[in-house]
Amino acid sequence: MLLVRGSKMEDRGVRDLPSLLNKGDVLVFNDTRVIPAQLEGVRPPRDGEHGEGAKIGATLHKRIDLRRWQAFIRNGKRLREGDMVEFPAGVTAIAENRHDDGSWSLSFGGDEPVEVLLERAGQMPLPPYIAGKRGTDEQDRSDYQTMFAERDGAVAAPTASLHFTPELIARLDEAGIGRETLTLHVGAGTFLPVKADDTDDHAMHAEWGRIEPDVAERLNAVRAAGGRVIAVGTTVLRLLESAAGENDLIRPFAGDTSIFITPGYRFRAVDGLMTNFHLPKSTLFMLVSALMGLDTMQAVYAHAIEQEYRFYSYGDSSLLLPAA
C-alpha cells in the first residue's frame, strides 16, 4: 500500500493500517454484493431471416424496477425495440428501448425476481483483464466479493475492501479505529473512460445508494469529536459526498447519485480515501486528483509504476490523506 500524506509518499502495507490511523478515526465500507449480471444469449431469427439469429451479450448495470434493468449490450446493432433475447436456463427478456448512451432497457419474462433468474443464467461481470483468467464460476462468485458484501445489486466489486481480512479488522478494533457500512450498488458506467473534451459534457451513470440515519449520525459525531472519516473505496466517497449538506454534515440518503468529482471540488464529508490505482482519463483518477491535487497524483502514479505496484481491481492499494 502506498501511503500519501499531503505530497509525501511512503511504501507501506495494508497490514500497517492500525498504526497509520488514529484512535477515533472510522473506516467506511460498502456492503454491496456483486450479482451475476453478465448474460450471453441469442436474438432468434426474425421472419425471413435464416440461421440461428444474432448472438447478444448483456451486462446489466442498473435496476429500473422489479422486472426491468438497464444494460450495456454487445452486438446491440442487431436489436430492435420489441425483440426477444433468449438466455440460458429458459430466461428471456424483451429489448424495450435504446438509450442515448447505447444501452438498452431489458424487461425480463416470468414472475421470479430478476436476481433469481441471474443466479441461474448469469456470470460474474469480471473486468476484461480478469475475465481472461476466469476460474470456475463458483470460485469467481466467491473471490469477486468483499468480506462486507451483504446487499445484492452491484455489477462490480468495491475492490478497495478486498484487502481486508477478519484478522486485520480485529487489529483495527483493538486500535480503537471504528467502522461503518453504507450501500452503493456499483454500476459499470462508473468505469467508462471520459471521451468528452470538456468534463462538463461527460454524463455519469446514476447508481443507487443508501446511508441509514444512525450511520450518518455516528459519522457526524466522529468528525465532531476530532476523528477522521476515511472512505474505503471511491464508491463510499462518492455516496458520502452526495449525502453531505452545505454545513458539511452527512445526511441520511436513499436514492440515485450521479455525482462527478473533478479537481476544484470542495470535499465536505471525508477526510481521506483508501483506494486501488485507476486507469488514466477515468472519472476515478479525476476524483483522486480532486482530493490530493493533480500534480501530487501524477507523482504518485509515476512512483507506483516505478516501484511495480499492481494496478486495477485485484491490485495494490493506496491510502490518500490530504494535507490539513
Results as ranks from 00 to 15, higher is better:
227 G>W: 03
68 R>I: 06
211 I>S: 06
71 A>K: 00
132 G>W: 07
76 G>Q: 02
301 Y>W: 04
65 D>L: 01
2 L>M: 07
68 R>P: 08
23 K>D: 15
277 F>R: 03
144 Y>K: 09
94 I>P: 08
166 P>A: 14
79 L>I: 04
312 Y>V: 14
15 R>Q: 13
234 T>F: 13
41 G>L: 14
64 I>M: 06
260 F>S: 04
237 L>I: 02
159 T>E: 11
133 K>N: 07
305 I>W: 05
125 P>E: 08
245 G>A: 04
204 M>W: 05
305 I>E: 14
108 F>S: 14
251 R>K: 07
271 D>G: 03
68 R>N: 04
25 D>G: 08
263 P>D: 08
313 S>C: 07
158 P>K: 11
153 G>I: 03
298 Q>M: 15
20 L>H: 09
309 Y>I: 15
63 R>G: 04
97 N>G: 12
162 L>M: 06
262 T>Y: 15
8 K>V: 10
207 E>A: 01
291 L>W: 10
100 D>G: 12
154 A>K: 13
126 L>P: 12
226 G>H: 11
24 G>S: 14
107 S>R: 04
321 L>Q: 04
116 V>F: 05
23 K>T: 14
283 T>K: 12
13 G>I: 13
303 H>Y: 15
171 R>G: 00
152 D>K: 03
53 G>V: 11
219 L>P: 05
294 L>S: 15
142 S>A: 12
304 A>T: 09
194 V>K: 08
218 R>S: 06
49 E>A: 07
229 V>T: 08
197 D>K: 01
259 I>E: 07
27 L>N: 06
96 E>S: 03
169 I>Y: 00
303 H>T: 05
314 Y>W: 10
104 W>T: 02
149 A>N: 09
106 L>H: 09
250 I>M: 08
237 L>G: 04
258 S>W: 00
289 S>L: 10
192 L>P: 06
122 G>Q: 00
108 F>H: 13
98 R>L: 10
195 K>M: 13
232 V>F: 14
83 D>T: 02
320 L>Q: 09
234 T>Q: 13
166 P>Q: 13
94 I>D: 11
266 R>V: 00
232 V>Q: 13
308 E>Y: 00
168 L>Q: 06
